[in-house]
Amino acid sequence: MAQPMKIRASLKGDVADVKVLMNHVMETGTRKDAKTGQLVPAHYITNVTCEVGGKPVMDAQWGGGISKNPYLAFRVSGAKKGDKVVVSWVDNTGDKSTADATVG
């Protein structure tokens, strides 16, 4: 199930430093269950989008090679204090999550 993600956006000059921590198992589909010896089905985030101040700034595609509970940081210039940061993801099972924060 989709759990909340954490977003922190701090302004340095006119550059917003955005840090995101998502909650996701990020199963690659190549790992075997230690008890049953069966492959654990793939379950990972495939797409991530980020918006700052209403404008899309990042549109990412991911594979299973991103670590469990993914961390993502990026910088956006021209951001202002109070701009809304919206981060959304969708995984290969169709599960999705969206969270927002304010640049401060």
Binding site: M58, D59, Q61
Partner: peptide
């Protein structure tokens, strides 16, 4: 691993954790 498209002032910088 990952493919990031950047626009609208996003700086060419990403930080993440990989396997």
């Amino acid at each position: 691993l990952a493919d990031f498209n950047l626009s609208n002032g996003a700086e060419p910088y990403v930080s993440t954790r990989i396997k």
